[in-house]
Write a protein that binds this DNA or RNA. Structure first.
Length: 212
DNA sequence: GTACAGATTGAG
DNA sequence: TCAATCTGTACT
């Protein structure tokens, strides 16, 4: 496993969004590592995109990090309660980013949570086994993954190429293009039909951890 | 200062 | 299907 460096993120968001699939988002909290495999992303490729916070070159306190070069965290709150993790992409001065929408969390990660339940009540061991298989659903949505990774405003502008608490890693494997599905982005109807229909959401076909 | 809608989620 | 919940943003 090696950390993705700056150059990975300075490409266009439509490229990066696809290449991030199958990579691992790593969060360090003290000595503990939380790791999820990225299985769903969305690209927000620039100022002409009506769905982008930087549409028409708009600059605000919230979105200004989008104008940085690729590799920084753009995180913001939606609906008053959910954080959304984005990574800036492309060159400085041109606002693009990729939204991380879902992670596949390995069984080992869940095992810790399961153990706790077991010690609390031996009688739910069998039920616990079921949940173990049925609920790797801790990070299968953009709000849920931030909650699971304990990400919030303090990560705004975090440098993913250098940070000690959040980065992206690869094991060298690649998702073949035929295994990547694409479709319209979620929750952006306000952008009007032209942009709302753009197939700029990408996910790993048949993966069980895609957001709903 | 005030109004308003949102790159979601989980419960009913 | 709908309410929760609150900040950023636009406008008075």
């Amino acid at each position: 496993m090696r950390r993705l460096s700056r150059s990975f993120f300075t490409k266009r968001s439509l490229i990066v969004a696809k290449k991030l699939l199958g990579c691992f988002l790593v969060r360090r909290i003290g000595k503990k590592l939380l790791i999820g495999r990225i299985v769903e992303t969305e690209a927000y490729p620039g100022p002409s995109d009506r769905a982008s916070h930087a549409f028409d070159g708009k600059v605000t306190a919230r979105n200004k990090i989008e104008y940085e070069k690729g590799g920084y965290v753009y995180i913001y709150l939606v609906y008053g309660m959910y954080w959304q993790l984005n990574i800036t992409t492309g060159r400085a001065g041109y606002p693009e980013c990729v939204l991380i929408r879902a992670l596949e969390v390995s069984d080992k990660q869940n095992a810790t949570r399961d153990k706790k339940r077991k010690t609390q009540n031996r009688n739910i061991i069998s039920m616990s086994r079921v949940t173990f298989h049925m609920s790797p659903n801790v990070a299968n949505g953009p709000g849920k993954l931030c909650r699971w990774l304990k990400l919030g405003k303090s990560f705004y502008g975090e440098n993913m190429a250098r940070s000690k608490r959040l980065w992206v890693a690869t094991d060298g494997s690649r998702i073949p293009p035929r295994a990547i599905a694409k479709g319209p982005r979620i929750g952006i109807d306000y952008a009007g039909p032209h942009y709302a229909k753009k197939p700029w959401r990408f996910w790993i076909k048949a993966n069980p951890c895609i957001s709903r």
